[in-house]
């Protein structure tokens, strides 16, 4: 059976995110063909219309483009655009929340950057 989707968020958004992930991680390189809507539908066991909606979301953003009669391809420069977008999201999702929580706990900016550095070494 297909890979599990999160049923509390629209599936087409999740499809778009998975394609984005593949582009950022380099699984899908620029100017290569993206699986067809039917293949997405079969793999994730989702409705083809939903898969198409996810793909079209990326077409609208210029990440994918359509070659008539062949299929969807990753646009040149798509990865850079996505990385930029993700950095923006990263700031919104993690940094802002982190700083807010830090303020609540009385952690000052210097202590915070120390902690981040420590997290980096532990991970490395």
């Amino acid at each position: 059976m297909g890979a599990q989707m999160d049923e509390s968020r629209p599936i087409f958004v999740q499809i778009a995110e998975r394609i984005e992930d593949d582009i950022i991680e380099g699984t899908l390189t620029e100017e290569t063909q993206v699986p067809s809507t039917t293949q997405f539908a079969a793999f994730y066991q989702i409705n083809p219309a939903t898969a198409a909606k996810g793909v079209n979301l990326l077409v609208d953003q210029g990440i994918l483009y359509k070659k008539r009669g062949i299929g969807m391809f990753v646009a040149s420069g798509a990865r850079a655009v996505l990385v930029e977008k993700r950095k923006e999201q990263f700031y919104e999702q993690y940094v802002v929340t982190m700083v807010r929580e830090a303020e609540k706990l009385g952690i000052n900016a210097e202590q915070l950057s120390d902690m981040i550095r420590r997290g980096g070494t532990n991970n490395g």
Binding site: T38, A42, Q45
Partner: peptide
């Protein structure tokens, strides 16, 4: 059941 869902989606797409 999974086979049924697979075949349904496949043929429906076409």
């Amino acid at each position: 059941r999974g086979l049924f869902y697979d075949r349904l989606l496949e043929d429906y797409a076409e």
